[in-house]
């Protein structure tokens, strides 16, 4: 079992890196995979001769495609990690990375920034992104505190408070859209998610929290197994359940806010990727967490590659792709799995 687990993780890692290379070759300008490899190795300070590759190709690979592809993979990994954690903490298969209001909070911040016209940014991290992040974090903190009773938190109350906050903010966003007709397109595009305009600074800003969050959440994987069998059960196995709930909620909501602020709202990834792997591996988080993270990265990378290449020259918001392709695929798997499992 353990070696099977290891093999699968290695397969996913190899797939991810191959897909990154393949995706980099695709686009309006086709760049041969040999050249892509050369450019990457050259940029990694290896002694490679790239003098015969067009300067425009080098620019496209290093400044446009690679940042976008890596950011899409990172966001996919985050969404899927957060989805898996939330589904465990809330013991609810419907939980996705946005249950605590990160999406509507971010959308509110972004809409605000777009409406008052302060879109351009510092370090490539636009004011829109920044306001989206702050607003997503604030919303999550409000939801968390609404659901707190004394020093304990009730997960049911979090779900309810999250739904109410989302509904409330959505109507305010609609109101702002009515008053800002001319910016409507921008706002709608943002809320459907896109990696257009990704850059290395965003990647650096996202990578650090992802790594820390990933390590902390992975360190709880055994405890999460005990936890999904019931809080009482987990406690009698020696798990400090309040500490665990709080740590995972805080880290997950921070990660969700990071993801949504750089990419806009991308639905479906954080909901279906964890379920997909649960159908294959069961609920053991020791394997479920790492494969979901890698699987989320692969899934969103594929979706984003489709989003930018499927219609020549026109970009489709990636959030639309995740639902159009992810939905039927998931239903197929659901139908095929005869066992009485989580969903």
């Amino acid at each position: 079992m353990k070696s099977k687990r290891f093999i699968f993780i290695v397969i996913l890692l190899i797939s991810l890196f191959s897909l990154i290379l393949i995706s980099t070759t695709l686009g309006t300008v086709k760049i041969p995979i040999k050249n892509v490899l050369k450019i990457i190795l050259y940029k990694l300070n290896l002694d490679i001769d790239i003098s015969n590759i067009k300067a425009s190709d080098i620019f496209i690979v290093t400044n446009i495609r690679l940042p976008r592809i890596i950011l899409a993979s990172l966001v996919g990994a985050i969404l899927s990690l957060v989805g898996t954690s939330y589904q465990a903490i809330f013991k609810n298969p419907m939980a996705d990375p946005y249950v605590m209001g990160a999406s509507s909070g971010a959308a509110f911040g972004a809409t605000l920034a777009i409406s008052i016209g302060i879109g351009s940014g510092i370090l490539g991290f636009g004011v829109t992104n920044l306001l989206a992040f702050i607003s997503a974090m604030l919303t999550t903190v409000i939801v968390y505190n609404l659901a707190k009773v004394g020093s304990k938190i009730s997960t049911t109350s979090i779900l309810l408070a999250g739904i109410v906050m989302t509904a409330f903010l959505s109507s305010i966003i609609s109101l702002m859209m009515i008053f800002n007709h001319e910016e409507l397109g921008k706002i709608v595009t943002w809320t459907m998610g896109s990696f257009n305009g990704a850059n290395w600074n965003q990647i650096i800003l996202v990578t650090i929290p992802v790594l820390i969050g990933l390590i902390v959440i992975l360190s709880f994987s055994k405890e999460m197994n005990a936890f999904v069998l019931g809080e009482e059960n987990a406690q009698s196995l020696g798990v400090n359940i309040e500490l665990m709930k709080k740590t995972i909620l805080v880290i997950s909501s921070f990660l969700a806010a990071c993801a949504v602020s750089v990419s806009g709202i991308i639905g479906f990834v954080g909901l279906i990727v964890p379920h997909l792997f649960r159908l294959i591996f069961g609920s053991n988080h020791k394997i479920l967490l790492p494969v979901s993270v890698l699987g989320g990265a692969i899934f969103l990378l594929i979706c984003d590659t489709l989003a930018r290449t499927i219609l020549n020259g026109i970009e489709i918001p990636v959030g639309i792709i995740t639902s159009i392709f992810g939905g039927p695929f998931f239903l197929y798997l659901l139908k095929r799995s005869k066992k009485n499992k989580l969903i």
Binding site: V228, L229, G230, E232, N233, G282, N284, K339, K341, L342
Partner: peptide
């Protein structure tokens, strides 16, 4: 402790 409520919604061997 073996608690009363042992509904397992998640799939484990």
């Amino acid at each position: 402790v073996v608690h009363q409520n042992n509904d397992v919604n998640f799939d484990f061997s």
